[in-house]
């Protein structure tokens, strides 16, 4: 028996990898991230560059060869933009918005939840009242109101998503921290004494991580979905910086006339990303939920 134990991370990975579906989801998600990151170099056309667009190429069906001399595997949109290129670039925007909103909401929500649980009393009452109040409204509605107030744009959308989503993190962390803070190891750490910030960050937080990881995964998927919805409704990302939702909205009006590809292919990309993240999240939930462990 080795004296240095297998780290929890290694055990965790072994358990996670038991599900082939979840591994598949992780692989697809990683691929999507890779495509998004390398979009400027692998796409045949820069969809933001108006000079490259030609109205002659507008609404070409998938597989056509346009004036650029290359094949539009997924067709072109109303301005003659290559749909495949637009998808990779849109993926970039969508994933960035989802990740940025997820990370910032995670940080703010975790701080709020931990602060409430650690300080207790009036601080806890005030913070958690606000969180509960917010959670009684659907995130999409809050985000909608916020973008209506803040206006369109990447920054505004991220702010709206963070404001709408931090509460989920706060409640999750608060719940976990409430259960943990009653345990003697927290009292033991405070009693050494260690500084409150150290007790919270080194003792309380690591033990609240499992539910937090699950919520974080799901919330990134939700952020991407909500952003797409806002963009589809015309109040999210501007046309100059289209996300997958914007692309779908742009093609919607052509769908009834049978030119499905402008909307549908970005839609499928969105679907794949969201489902992949959710598959990963589902397996994380199973692995990290102590109730399901034998």
């Amino acid at each position: 028996m080795s004296t240095r134990a297998a780290s929890p991370a290694a055990l965790f990975w072994a358990e996670f990898a038991e599900s082939k579906v979840a591994l598949g989801g992780l692989f697809v998600f990683a691929l999507a991230v890779l495509l998004a990151l390398t979009a400027p170099w692998i796409t045949p056309q820069d969809p933001h560059d108006q000079a490259l667009l030609s109205l002659m190429d507008a609404r070409l069906p998938p597989g056509s060869v346009g004036s650029g001399g290359y094949t539009h595997w997924l067709g072109t949109d109303a301005q003659g933009r290559d749909v495949l290129s637009a998808i990779f670039w849109g993926l970039r925007t969508s994933l960035f918005v989802g990740a940025a909103a997820g990370v910032v909401a995670l940080c703010i929500g975790t701080t709020v939840g931990l602060a409430a649980a650690f300080f207790g009393g009036r601080v806890e009452l005030a913070l958690m009242r606000l969180v509960d109040l917010q959670l009684s409204f659907p995130a999409i509605l809050l985000a909608l109101v916020l973008v209506a107030i803040l206006g369109q744009g990447l920054f505004q959308v991220v702010v709206a998503l963070v404001a709408a989503q931090y509460a989920y993190f706060a409640r999750t962390v608060h719940g976990a921290a409430l259960a943990e803070r009653r345990k003697e190891y927290i009292e033991a750490a405070s009693g050494i004494p260690l500084r409150p910030t150290r007790v919270v960050l080194r003792h309380l937080l690591p033990n609240c991580l499992p539910p937090l990881i699950v919520v974080a995964t799901v919330q990134v998927a939700n952020a991407i979905a909500i952003e797409a919805t806002l963009s589809f409704l015309g109040v999210g990302m501007p046309v100059t910086e289209p996300s997958l939702g914007t692309l779908i909205a742009n093609g919607f009006q052509f769908m009834l006339s049978g030119r499905y590809w402008i909307s549908v292919y970005p839609g499928i990309a969105l679907l794949i990303v969201i489902v992949a993240i959710n598959l990963v999240g589902d397996q994380l939930r199973d692995v990290l939920n102590p109730r399901l462990k034998k």
Binding site: P8, K183, N207
Partner: peptide, 13 residues
């Protein structure tokens, strides 16, 4: 402390 299980942080060597 009383409880040798609860008084140690499970995520710390």
């Amino acid at each position: 402390f009383q409880d040798p299980f609860a008084s140690l942080n499970p995520r710390m060597r």
